[in-house]
Design a protein around this nucleic acid. Structure first.
Lengths: 198, 198
DNA sequence: AGCGTTCTTGACTACATCGTCCATAAGCTC
DNA sequence: GAGCTTATGGACGATGTAGTCAAGAACGCT
């Protein structure tokens, strides 16, 4: 019994995410989302509740994807390549942030716009940042085991700093800083990591 | 001849800024600004043009103030206190960013929301960041002269990194990271600056 | 095939919002 | 104080927006 849904939930959520991403929460109307997804407003409200609930859903999925991406780029069995993974992760990000067509990071935009007014968003943002920091810390510990980073340094502290640099690169990139500068900043940050004493 | 304005322009702009600051550009209605400033909408439109023009005006003033504040905190004749000024500037920022009641940095919020859709805002944001970087670089050069930082290092590169950390602290603070963590990150960044060889 | 359940559509409501307009008030100059 | 110019404030129009609703369509089970 029952009529099954006609739409692909994932596709609809992606389209909704793109709309919110482009114009922010306050700047996006449900009519725009209906047009972007191809759904009627009734279906939209029936399936997802309302604007806020839909956004929470979209945002949550995006945070999960962000953590997944960091994990994929930074995890590995091979301690000898841990520093290489770290460099790649940060440099990729620097280059991506410099693309003029880039719409910036949804996580950053959302945190800036909504964290103050929406506790659900605030909590999810913080948790996402903490997760990324843990992933960075795990990679840094691998770097320490391999002798790329001073084992006496606090991996958590260094991971927090690198996360900060990561977020700062995002901010500068959004303002229009060019790619070579962003990569140079990343390199300077990596150069500042403590080396093991010889 | 002519009737002079009844309102204090500066006060009105401050009130408008606070509204935009609290609820963003898209999230702020002109009615809300009229209520916050006490002006009728006719006066508001007559004096400032429209929502976008008013925002540009407010934003421009805010950027000027931001640069002025950095200048005040980081400039000085005394090279011996340059490193102290730098530490103070960054630590103050870290503590300020951790205040739960803090509404975040208007510059950061605006960059995140509008830079993609508004060239005037994008250009002003970039120019503001560049100015702050120059101020940081000048202070770092003083640190180099005084022997606190390796004179062989590029002051511009280090300034760019510190600006990045500054913006990253802002982002993490908005997400809810606590004060001690933000100060620790700042300290880690300062510890990573190259010391002059002895 | 018939039935019940759920999905879909888009018109509809009620209100918010941008920006305009105009009658009126308030100086300034002579 | 007369007359001019400009500021003021709030009503107004047109459009935008969040969310609802009812009529009908699509599907699976019997």
């Amino acid at each position: 019994m029952v009529r099954p849904r006609e739409f692909d939930e994932e596709r609809v959520l992606d389209a909704a995410r793109d709309q919110f991403w482009a114009t922010g929460f306050a700047g996006t109307s449900m009519d725009a989302i209906a047009a972007a997804t191809g759904l009627g407003k009734g279906s939209l409200y029936g399936a997802f509740g309302g604007k806020r609930e839909l956004f929470h859903r979209v945002f949550d999925d995006h945070c999960t994807a962000t953590i997944g991406s960091a994990t994929r780029q930074l995890s590995g069995e091979d301690d000898a390549r841990a520093f290489e993974r770290l460099t790649g992760y940060l440099m990729n990000h620097a280059s991506a942030c410099a693309e003029p067509s880039r719409r910036g990071c949804l996580l950053a935009k959302t945190t800036a716009e909504l964290t103050q007014h929406d506790e659900v968003v605030a909590a999810r943002s913080l948790k996402t940042f903490e997760s990324v920091q843990q992933i960075l810390a795990a990679d840094l510990e691998a770097c320490q085991r391999n002798g790329d980073v001073d084992p006496a340094a606090g991996a958590q502290q260094l991971a927090a700093l690198l996360l900060t640099v990561h977020r700062g690169i995002e901010a500068l990139g959004k303002a229009g800083t060019d790619e070579s500068t962003l990569r140079e900043i990343t390199q300077t940050a990596l150069d500042g990591l403590p080396r093991p004493p010889r």
